[in-house]
Each structure stands twice: as C-alpha cells, then as structure tokens.
Amino acid sequence: MPIAPSAAILDAWHVFSAAAEIGPGPYRSTLLLDTRLDYRRGTNGEVEVRRRDTGAALLVIERYGFAWTSLGSPPDDLFSIPEFYEPDRKNMSCGSLGVNVSAPRAVENFLDMGHFPYVHTGILGEEPHTEVKEYDVEISYERDEILATRCRFYQPRAALSADEGQDVEYIYRVPHPYCSVLYKSCPADESRLDVIGIFCQPMTEETIRAHLLQSMIDDENTITAMRRFQQTIFGQDKPILENQYPKRLPLDPRAETPIRADKSAIAYRRWLSQKGVNYGVIPQAA
C-alpha cells in the first residue's frame, strides 16, 4: 500500500517528461507518486495531463525543456535557473533514465564528489587523486535551497587542451527535494560555468526516472556528443544506485557513517527532515 506523500512533496512541481517528447496524438502514460497519469500535447500546443484514477486535469508548466505537474497545490513557479536563458548556451535534455532507487538517493549521489575516481574512472576522477577538499555548505532558508560552494576535485581530463590533470571547481544547488543543479568550470570560457541538472521523477518510493539537463558553453561538440557524454556518466552511476540498501534514503544520522566529504549530503538529509519529506526516505524515528 503506497504511503501518502506529505505536503512538501504533494504540493511540489514534479518533472514527468522532456517537453520535446510530448506530441499531439494518443495519450502517453507515466507514473508519478504511485499515481498513473496520461498526457499529450493538445491542439492548442499546451500539454494536458490527467490522473487516470479520478480523471482530474492537473496543472502543467514547461521549464528548462521539461514538463512538470503537481498532484497538490503547487507554487506559482519552479525554482529558477537563469543561465538556461542565456542566448549562447546549448540546452539539451540528455534523456530520461529509469533507475530502481529512491529520488533522494539519486540526488545525494549527484552531490557526491568522493565517488568520481571509483565510478567515473578516467573521466571525472582517477586514482590516486581521491581527496575531497574542504568546501562550504549552507542551507538558505530565504531561498529554501542548499548551496555547496568552493568544491574542487582533481579531474584527469578536465579540458581537451589539458595535458595534465587539474582541480575543477563545482557549485551545487539543491532547490527542490528531488532536483539538483551543478555549475562546473567551463573549459571553453574561464569566466563562465557549465550547468548540469538532475530532475528526478518519483514514480514510486523506490523507482524513479532521472531527467538530465545540460546547458553548456561549447561551440566545438555536437549536441549528440554532449548527450552521449552525460549518458555515459549516468550509466556508470546507475548500477551503484541500484545496489544501495536500503533504497529509500535513511534520515536517521545513525543509519550510515558520514565523513567530512559528505557535508552536503548531511545538510540535504537534515533539510529533508526539516521539510517533513516522508516519500522516498526512511524518516528519523521520533
């Protein structure tokens, strides 16, 4: 028997498809929070979504190349990614990938740098350069998001022109319980940052579709090549995520063993607890 999501999840916007993949014609179907949805693009060009159980029409917005809906009373708008609208960026969906894991586990993995040398060997990291250097994390109550800054990690091939490894800078944002956005040094333009987002669609507590966004400054590579790169990275994460137990993220600080490198994950778990998130997590015993 699926649990009823608390307001923090019920009233949030949730991604359910790349916008470009929704065409007119027959309804397509997907699952959100254990609820079956049917959707299509109407004749007026607007996306229509309805619940199969009640037939109720749901609100829809299109942001960052994806379509979002809500089973409750959502806020006026989604969190903002202003960089997406810069005219010279290449924006792309890198696919919607099913993973047998909870959304918070996938977000936590996205925030994690320590696994780069082991899971993304030769791309985002390489032994023996395994150190996660000190970084800063804050929970901004005003913006209601987590911000991790001054994150640096040694990457073997940070740029095509690099013949030696170098520290790459990251900034991470968690503006939504199931979404995260990272900003990363841009090889093509030192003054700007590439943007990569993970938006998790919680199908059930323990199964998701991860929708990936890239917003890049890159005149050299094709969209297809950039998509493939991101899919390779995520394809390396998927088997790890599917071997994590328990699949729901435990919010009790004694469930797992944190280290300093996990500061952002510790803040994330605390933030989920404070928001009263109960879906895709094992809440802390009262």
């Binding site: 137990y245 797992e256 063993t257």
Partner: peptide, 10 residues
C-alpha cells in the same frame, strides 16, 4: 553484512 557502512552499497 552486504552493505558498506558509508552509503549502503552492496
């Protein structure tokens, strides 16, 4: 136990 104490990976 088939679980790393850090992040629960088998």
């Amino acid at each position: 136990e088939n679980r790393c104490l850090h992040r629960g990976v088998r």
